[in-house]
Design a binder for these strands. Structure first.
Lengths: 235, 235
DNA sequence: GAAGTCCTTTCTGGATCCAAGAATGCGTAT
DNA sequence: ATACGCATTCTTGGATCCAGAAAGGACTTC
């Protein structure tokens, strides 16, 4: 059986997903043996996987003591948004003159889908107190799908990789517990997506760039205020 | 003996330095056993080190075939400069209002040192055909030292980490073999550093930002043309 | 002479084993 | 009761061992 991927890589991907999805809380100590029996392998590939996660900054090794899921501070979160704003701006600028009609159509579809989910989400949050999180997850995925169309057209793999790394940073944060506070964000994001698409469609890369940057920054600002209102319990 | 660092980490650092410094050519296959006897350890920590380098994108694993030092394509090099330009712009903008008198003094000193080395380097390249590379290395370090003052003041560890990763990308490229062609770059960099420092000192963050960005981009453009003139032997 | 098959060698990926560092808990002395 | 010291236990970092994949021949066949 010629394995196209190695166990260490599989485990790394799985763990990364789980941590990013928040299924493993920041601060948790990952026991090697525990993981090895969970994945039914020896500790060797587990440790190689952990090394990779460490290089990505997702976990941190404390020599002879174990690996710990890193928790991001408010400062790091803030910085991640700054970085993402710059990279998103760059990608949008580069993508604009490269957009094919197919890309534009895809962008339009992504925007529409995002709009629909936004409406549904606001509806839900107005009605129910304890909102279902699946809709929220879908909404967020639709958000990323919109941006992915742009990344795809920009054809800048490094930028895409780094920006997605920055995304990761705050996906695992517990900000999302305060979904209810986000009504403001929902509608704003929707409007900004429309503006970005229009600027791209009009071929004005500089305008698109500026709006894209502001789009990310304003999300960051809002999330920051939500975080503050949640109180400063940082780990 | 309570080891503060683990062997895997030490090896990773060493290998990274050697690859970035160009002592190990891109495309080289790294044999695990060879490395293990060179560092006088078993293959286990070697492999963990290699996993880390793989996560950083410095080497790539080819399952069951070995790890290979990644060679960067012209496109990747170009993209790395785009990214660095954005990040450097951001760092400069953020740093400007945060610069203490001490920082400004350090920036001034770094600029002066860079200027001196620039003069020395142009002198040398005018005289000797086969120029000594140590002076060139010093010059490059002085260049980075200047930018590091800014990163330090900006206090954005993520940005710094990513930007330095992008630096790495082209340090290992063989562009530097064509040092002779760089006279243009030498003087331009010097002028741009002065302009950046002046903008920062004047407190105009936006101006500093724009100049810093242009500074990186123009270096990128020049290096690109040098690369082309070297011929397109990409691996 | 070129291509295909089998066998040997080499090397990787993973499992297992071992030594040493860190935590834990108990007993004792103050 | 509290703090110190010592032994036990747990877990990590690293070494060694093993099975399977890929590369490299030699030998055969057309």
């Amino acid at each position: 059986m010629s394995s196209l991927s190695t166990k260490a890589d599989d485990i790394a991907r799985l763990l990364e997903d789980e941590i990013v999805a928040g299924h493993i809380a920041p601060g948790t100590v990952l026991r090697q043996e525990q993981l090895s029996e969970r994945f039914d392998v020896s500790r060797t590939p587990v440790r190689e996987a952990l090394r990779r996660l460490a290089a990505l900054g997702i976990v941190s090794f404390e020599p002879n003591r174990g690996v710990r899921v890193r928790s991001i501070s408010a400062g790091e979160l803030r910085e991640a948004f700054l970085v993402r704003a710059e990279l998103e701006a760059l990608a949008t600028e580069v993508a604009t003159p490269r957009m094919t009609p197919a890309d534009l159509a895809a962008l339009d579809a992504a925007e529409r889908r995002f709009s629909e989910l936004t409406v549904a989400l606001r509806e839900q949050s107005r009605r129910a107190e304890q909102s279902d999180s699946t809709l929220f997850v879908e909404w967020m995925q639709a958000n990323y799908a919109f941006h992915d169309v742009i990344y795809n057209a920009a054809d800048l793999p490094l930028v895409e990789r780094l920006a997605k790394g920055a995304r990761r940073t705050f996906l695992s944060s517990r900000v999302w517990s305060a979904k209810a506070e986000f009504d403001d964000l929902y509608v704003k994001n929707d409007l900004q997506h429309r503006a970005i698409r229009e600027a791209i469609a009009a071929g004005s890369d500089q305008a698109a760039r500026v709006i894209a940057k502001e789009h990310v920054l304003s999300s960051g600002r809002l999330i920051e205020t939500v975080l503050e209102s949640l109180g400063g319990q940082e780990r």
